[in-house]
């Protein structure tokens, strides 16, 4: 099926992404096949508050990227994430409706994904999905996060270039100086820039950047540019695509790209370590030993932390 996807069969690629989402042995096997062939595409992450215009910008950006692609490449991969209901697990994945009218369907592959219980603005399957799209030569791959608040910054650990979208009236300079989302931006977009307050939003971001890290001799410095867009009519999108390109070049020239990818690999590996160790721990908690330890916690003769250490004692040597 992987070879069929490489040959351009979209249905095969769609099915592969389902295997990634399902995980398990089939997902792991796919990662084994895809990983050696991946590592070429530029990953662009778009994040921002709900309703800021992420989907519309993603669609427009994909269209711009697709228009600029070389003839022998399949085009632009898009993964658009929306939240799963924490109650029922269901989801309404509604990002395509903002994109279908503008994207070139031949040169773009759009996949909607539900978070399925993940809380950092991404779905667990995102790194795997990027790997597969990358391995079948989609470049760039654009990831649109769920609408986020202030601290859901998983995207920055996943993307090469992180674009943070704000809108006029999103907050003032104090909001801008709080920690979180704004710290991870490589590029800022003030969308809905035709609305009142757009220049104020821009000014507040500039002020925040002025207060931030200053260039140090010998350390590569990138000051996040601030772009004004009206995504609904496409204003400013070419400039945004241009800035993404500049950031990509900067990452490559400074070696920062290698750093980011290394920390991404590490992040993914450690995430899997957590998962595997967690599975071992949960299984052991069900064993006689685990039940006995839980009993001691109940009797208050042992703390939960001590019980956990005891449970994994052989692994913690």
């Amino acid at each position: 099926m992987f070879e069929r996807a490489v040959a351009g069969e979209r249905r095969a690629l769609g099915r592969l992404l389902t295997l990634v989402e399902r995980g398990g042995p089939a997902g792991d096997e796919l990662a084994e096949i895809a990983h050696p062939r991946a590592g070429h595409c530029h990953v662009v992450g778009l994040t921002g508050a709900p309703g800021a215009g992420k989907s519309t910008i993603t669609g427009r950006l994909a269209a711009a990227a697709s228009a600029a692609r070389a003839d022998d490449t399949p085009g632009v991969g898009v993964v658009a994430i929306d939240p799963s209901s924490p109650i029922t697990g269901g989801a309404i994945l509604g990002d395509r409706i903002r994109m279908d009218e503008v994207i070139d369907r031949e040169g773009t592959f759009v996949r909607s994904m539900a978070t399925r219980g993940s809380s950092g603005g991404l779905a667990l399957a995102v790194p795997g999905a990027i790997r597969v799209l990358d391995a079948v030569a989609y470049d760039p791959v654009i990831i649109e996060t769920v609408g986020v608040g202030q601290v859901e910054v998983d995207i920055a650990g996943t993307a090469d270039t992180t674009v943070v979208v704000v809108t006029p009236g999103w907050g003032d300079a104090v909001q801008a100086n709080k920690a979180g989302l704004l710290e991870v931006a490589d590029i800022f977009v003030v969308n809905k820039a035709e609305r009142p307050g757009a220049s104020d939003a821009r000014r507040d971001l500039e002020l925040m950047l002025d207060l931030g890290a200053h260039p140090v001799e010998g350390v590569p410095h990138w000051r996040a540019p601030i772009l004004m867009t009206t995504a609904t009519d496409g204003t400013g999108i070419d400039e945004l695509w241009n800035e993404v390109g500049k950031h990509r070049t900067w990452l490559q020239e400074t070696g920062e790209l290698e750093n980011r990818r290394q920390s991404r690999d590490r992040f993914e590996m450690l995430g899997r370590v957590d998962e595997l160790l967690g599975a071992v721990g949960r299984a052991r908690a069900e064993s006689d030993h685990g039940v006995r330890l839980l009993g001691e916690v109940k009797e208050r003769s042992m703390s939960p932390a001590a019980a956990a250490s005891e449970l994994l004692n052989d692994l913690l040597q």
């Binding site: 979209r10 099915r15 209901s85 989801a91 395509r96 369907r105 759009v110 996949r111 909607s112 539900a114």
Partner: peptide, 27 residues
């Protein structure tokens, strides 16, 4: 959604081609 389904919502004014395209990509 409330019954646990992942709905890929395409909404108004679709064509058979756009729906097929979505069905393939979204599996």
């Amino acid at each position: 959604r409330d019954a646990g389904v992942e709905v890929i919502y395409l909404g108004l004014r679709q064509t058979a081609a756009t729906i097929i395209n979505a069905a393939e990509q979204e599996d």
